[in-house]
Design a binder for these strands. Structure first.
Lengths: 316, 316
DNA sequence: GTGATGGTTTGACTTTTGTCAGTGCGCGTG
DNA sequence: CACGCGCACTGACAAAAGTCAAACCATCAC
């Protein structure tokens, strides 16, 4: 939605209504239009980020369990989404909380790296609109083919659009058929510059993938089921931005990883705010690996997951 | 307003209503309370900064005159408050705009210096509530006696309160009766530390004072009318955080300044974001001095003032 | 135990807001 | 020039939110 000249009236209506607290009919009188138009303008102002309404995520950070988990693991901040709420669907709640947390972590002028996956896409889908000009949202890894609609470029673009931020995509496949080609492509100035620019990020957003033979990476065709099985047998612990890590969160020197166009893991680890969101409780082991590997500083999980993590860390 | 245990329900109500978009009666049903209570909780959530509603100040920055003034003066950003709006009182509008701009300039974790004066107090008075834990608001200069209700500590405290930020006051008078006492007091660890800490600020907020014999500094008893007259004759151009500057914005080596407990002007100049708000058009010359002295990077003024400034800068 | 106090909570009422079918108007097209 | 198309606007109605007096309920002082 590009800024059109008569956005002015939209700004004015929003200003009078939200900042000055006038009633819609007063705004209408002042701008000499009908009240119904004012109502319409106000909706658009909200949808375009001219007006931002945000709720503190403290509700989810304000939890004894969260504090304990932070102390045990050394994570900077943990948000816990309860499952026991009668009416609210916890699976639907997680991305909403994550989106709000994500927004709170953004500073003006930040550069933000975004990976991909179902979780990230869900998050993008419920991301509130905001007016964050000057913020840059960039893709952390190469793209996938058609089948999925939560492809890396989709996630980046959608988040950038909602935030009124600039979106930067990586125009390369996530996985290539040969290591040599991957090397060559990584050396291409366009791609190389984009991968290098990731080190300027102040914040990254991702989830962690599992290493089962029906995992994300397999289903989207980036990796054969047998290959994944082999990796799992060889000690793979999880997937970060398309790359396989071992149970301690270290990069695995395997064919798949060498064929991947994605952010360097050390670069990611060096980013100050690393926000990790995990929806499924089945991702416990991958999450443990990711935390051990230093891929999370800010974590959003369910109560169940938090309890399991705490148990793991207490027993050493 | 300290956080009390049952703030939890307040957060919950705000979350369901604002983030999930439920209706008040749905929230009421879910929390098992009456809808009227929900309405009340929501108001409190807004008033306590749990929920923040902010409108982009673009409306006032989006102005040809503002761009021209930025180019001419080298200021980083200018906001212009129009006077010609039929219905809205421009004097009342200025602080509202300034407060919104101020909020937009704050980043999480910032340390902010606040001076004092009528303008700053007006601003504090219309400052929206926000949830900026981790932000510190500190007084730039010493205090005055009783007569005024817009004393330095008042301004700081009120702004900190609205923002839910930490407020730090300087417990010293603005002006002492002797230079020696001022020196000694500046050397006191408590005071010295506070003055030194000002250099850690990322943002300052102030206006500029005039040098007439009925100026602010005189009326509040910090300076005798004759003294001010003498300073004006000696080339005083304006007042910044209680200290007199000359027409080029340089610190004046005068008895008053030496008796002042206030932030070092070079320290202030080194702060990245220096937000200056000027309500009265009569403050044209002081403002020119302040800009020349490098005390503003972000400026909020009326259209008239902007035109005069532009004229001054074009003619050299 | 009583009664006063300060704060919540509620039901009932009023005001404000959201919505949508329908109107009006400018503009490019046949 | 008439026609149709798209867009912004309006009027009227239904839905939702704001408000307030009265009830309630702990807590404390006497």
């Amino acid at each position: 939605m590009p800024i059109r000249p008569n956005d002015h009236i939209l700004h004015k209506a929003a200003w009078l209504y939200y900042t000055h607290g006038l009633r819609q009919d007063e705004v209408a009188r002042q701008l000499d239009i009908s009240r119904a138009s004012v109502a319409m303008y106000l909706r658009r102002a909200r949808e375009s980020g001219i007006v931002t309404i945000s709720t503190s995520t403290q509700l989810f950070a304000d939890d004894v369990l969260a504090r304990e988990l932070e102390d045990a693991t050394g994570l900077k901040s943990v948000w816990i989404v309860p499952e026991d709420r009668h009416a609210m669907d916890p699976t639907a709640e997680m991305p909403v909380v994550a989106a709000a947390v994500f927004l709170e972590l953004i500073n003006k002028g930040d550069r933000i790296g975004v990976a991909w996956g179902r979780t990230v896409y869900h998050l993008a889908d419920v991301m509130p609109y905001a007016d964050l000009k000057g913020v840059t949202v960039m893709q952390l890894c190469g793209n996938l083919g058609a089948p999925y609609n939560y492809r890396p470029d989709q996630c980046t673009t959608e988040i950038a659009r909602r935030l009124n931020a600039e979106g930067i995509n990586i125009y390369a496949p996530l996985v290539l058929s040969s290591e040599q080609l991957a090397d060559e492509l990584r050396g291409e100035p366009v791609i190389r510059d984009q991968l290098t620019a990731i080190s300027d990020c102040q914040l990254v957003l991702y989830s962690v993938g599992g290493c089962e033979s029906d995992s994300h990476l397999v289903r989207c065709g980036a990796l054969a089921a047998e290959e994944m099985q082999a990796l799992a047998d060889a000690g793979a612990g999880g997937v970060i931005a398309g790359q396989v890590i071992d149970k301690d969160g270290q990069w695995m020197d395997c064919a798949h990883n060498r064929r991947c166009i994605s952010a360097n893991l050390d670069t990611i680890r060096a980013i100050p705010k690393r926000m990790m969101v995990v929806e499924e409780d089945s991702k416990f082991e991958p999450l443990v690996a990711a935390i051990k590997g230093g891929f999370a500083s800010h974590l959003v999980v369910t109560t169940t997951m938090a309890r399991r993590l705490l148990a793991r860390w207490s027993t050493g």
